[in-house]
Amino acid sequence: MSLPSQGRRPWTFYVLSVMFTLFVLFLYGPMFIMFILSFQGPTGGLVFPMRGFSFTWFEALFGQARTGDVGGAFSRSLPLALIVMVLTVLISVTAGFAFRRRFVGSGFLFYTAVASLIVPGLVLSIGILVTARFLGIPARWWFTGLGAHLSWTLPFGLLIMFAILGRLSPSYEEAAYDMGATRWQTVRHVVIPIVFPGMIAVALFGFTLSYDEFPRSWLTVGSLNTLPIEIWTMTTNVTSPALYALGTVTSAISFVAIGLAIGSIAYIQHRRSKRT
């Protein structure tokens, strides 16, 4: 439904349009400039003008140049993000169901889970490192790093599941029970299929939040860096467009992840509205 036309647009429309355009430029402009500059020619530098067009810096990225261990960092960040994704979905979904029924201490548990959203990431990172040292556990990306990332992704996952399950009418489960489904059959054939789009959203959050997490990774991943830390290190000692190439590649991976998630949600909804 459109609002009724009221003749000429007021002057505020133009002011706000300009502001919005500036906002969008500010939001996406730097990213696109980085994309463009990553295709800088071999003799080009970190700034415009472009001196030709090449994939030189992408090659340098994965070569044995002085650009740091990007391949190694990627080989840790990707599996870490995937593990965080799977655990976030698993824990958020099951916890979401637990929270549907009030249990003793549920309020307290919820606030402690959400509190880690407020605690500054760097402080948390230090805290985990100190605790690990105290317990004699070496910091590793797949252990202390994983824990630090989960402290960040779980509150998000839980909040999303609350929203999803809040809209799940209990009558679906009752109808399944009425027709002789066991609890497990109800979960498998009714609940999971209905909340599946929500689970994809949780997975997406889990993956992207972990993949680009810096503060919580900083002290917790140990001596082998994840990608965001590697990039941060590079900004201090790499002065070539390889830095931009790295930015382009990691952005592309994020976009692929988001595209896959949104695509699968759209596919499910399409299948539900029109039987294939």
């Binding site: 009418s169 009558s171 009752e174 109808a175 027709m179 002789g180 299929p193 039987r275």
Partner: peptide, 22 residues
């Protein structure tokens, strides 16, 4: 007893048809 053991069937107020099934 479970509903099926009772030989009852219920029609829910909002019908509760499973939205993901034909």
């Amino acid at each position: 007893l479970k509903p099926v053991q009772r030989g009852t069937a219920m029609m829910f107020q909002s019908y509760a048809l499973f939205p993901h099934l034909s």
